[in-house]
């Protein structure tokens, strides 16, 4: 854990010492605010819970994009600049590198998301939504961010540069989000399996509605675990090449 903390601390420092972290945060806050005003509040009267659900719908997309932007550099940048050699020639295990990268990025995205908490609080103060609904929605956003980051770590591990890492991650995430379309045109029982894998329709929607289901938690945890495991295996194979 010592090495995980060391590497994670350095990673967090990158967000604070370079403009990238501030730019992504500013972008997310601006777009979340806009989405809330334009699509959440809108011009026609709505129930408070519908406003919150609409806001969470857009926050799902924006958080996913922010997580892709943050994760694309995690390993690919180290490979491009040659600093991966420093980690590879140190007594550090591959899973420690992966956990540190993932953990630091998750902390950063979570802090970013928490900065947007004023939006649901506005609904809470001026309307009628439960704290539980807000908490479930933000737990869903955090799990979504963690899933995209884990996939992003994998994309970054298999890519030679950051751009390629971003594209690979975006493609995998887009595929997982859009699987519900594939489920529509496939026969049972295959469509059930495919729709189970769909990120938004299959799992985030319940968080969006303020419902906490163990099956959704297990789904997100499984994707995160397998993406991180695959990333570790990729690093292990690259370390000796």
């Amino acid at each position: 854990m010592r090495n995980v903390w060391l590497i994670a601390k350095r990673e967090l420092g990158v967000y604070l010492r370079t403009p990238a972290g501030y730019l992504i945060t500013a972008g997310l806050l601006l777009l979340d605010g806009l989405a809330f005003n334009v699509f959440g509040v809108g011009s026609s009267p709505k129930l408070s819970s519908a406003v919150l659900q609409d806001y969470l719908y857009f926050a799902f997309g924006l958080t996913s994009v922010a997580a892709i932007l943050i994760s694309m550099r995690l390993i690919a940048e180290e490979r491009q600049t040659g600093t991966l050699t420093l980690l590879f020639t140190s007594p550090v295990k591959e899973h420690e590198i992966i956990l540190a990268k993932f953990g630091s990025a998750l902390v950063f995205v979570t802090v970013m998301n928490l900065l947007t908490i004023y939006i649901p609080l506005l609904i809470f103060v001026n309307g009628k939504v439960s704290i539980g609904h807000i908490a479930a929605g933000y737990l869903g956003l955090t799990l979504q961010a963690a899933t995209v980051l884990a996939i992003g770590v994998f994309g970054s591990a298999i890519s030679w540069n950051q751009l390629m890492a971003g594209v690979v991650t975006a493609l995998i995430v887009a595929l997982l989000v859009l699987l519900w379309m594939v489920a529509r045109v496939t026969e049972p029982p295959l469509n059930k399996i495919i729709s189970y894998l769909a990120l938004f329709q299959g799992h985030f929607q319940s968080f969006q509605r303020g419902i906490l289901r163990v099956s959704d938690l297990i789904f997100y945890a499984s994707i995160i675990f397998f993406a991180l495991l695959a990333s570790t295996r990729v690093l292990q194979s690259q370390r000796w090449r």
Partner: peptide, 17 residues
Amino acid sequence: RKFIGYLPDTPPLYGEM
């Protein structure tokens, strides 16, 4: 790895530190 110090042909440096 604990008792090796290695400088590759391109120094592995974190520029922001």
